[in-house]
Design a protein around this nucleic acid. Sequence first.
DNA 1: CATTGACCTTCCAGCCGGTGGAACCCCTAT
DNA 2: ATAGGGGTTCCACCGGCTGGAAGGTCAATG
Lengths: 132, 132
Amino acid sequence: MNIGDVAERSGLPAKTIRYYEEIGLIAPRRAANGYRSFAEADVHKLAFLGRARALGFGIDDCRSLLQLYGDDGRTSAEVKHIAEDHLERIDAKIAELTEMRATLARLVHACAGDHRPDCPILADLARAEGRG
Amino acid sequence: MNIGDVAERSGLPAKTIRYYEEIGLIAPRRAANGYRSFAEADVHKLAFLGRARALGFGIDDCRSLLQLYGDDGRTSAEVKHIAEDHLERIDAKIAELTEMRATLARLVHACAGDHRPDCPILADLARAEGRG
DNA sequence: CATTGACCTTCCAGCCGGTGGAACCCCTAT
DNA sequence: ATAGGGGTTCCACCGGCTGGAAGGTCAATG
């Protein structure tokens, strides 16, 4: 299977697949003409990676997850540990964004949005002492 | 004022301040010895930038906000527009993360996290057809 | 058999918003 | 004179790709 077919089947762009090979996440064979020659297992791995990435796992986590996936001696505790750490990072990010959102929404709400120059948003940015 | 003092007063690392000069957000004078020589207005601008960045505005937005801030002929509508766009992007990001979080939390919950290899997390990544 | 066009290859550059480090200059205190 | 704590420039790197140039390969045409 050539990279185009694999891209279609895995849902990942060809560029990304080449990149994943470059950083050692997959290692497809090569045909005599130099083209990458993908096996079903590669497609499977790539789909796995696509789903892990879609859940927000970083490349390093993906590497670990893939390794655990292929390791019969793994424990589910190892996998869970990675996922829990990631969950914490997501929660932290959500909390951060939620705080931003609250401040921003308050400012947007306070701003008339008309032709006049007076603007609570700029006022807040220019001098944020007193409130968060 | 030298960059170190400005860093302390604005809360931004000296590296970042140099970077902001490089990309044209600020333009401090230079002393005879080549050192950057910051005025109060520069410190003010940097603090403004720091707060805008803390609200998640991108550098381009910061540039626009700074420009509007210094423009007496601005309208609050222009400022509000930038903020509303940004608010939408934040909401989209929160929604994305919240969805990730939901899936991930479900998987983590379903995983025993013990010494055995069976793991719903890996199972889901390996074959995610049927559920989101 | 030559050409077209879709595919594949490699390599280099860029995105965002900095951050780290090397190599060097400047200023003050001892 | 020297030590140290500033400052300066420049270049490389982070994540995770993405775009594009330059060129090789292949199947189907005229």
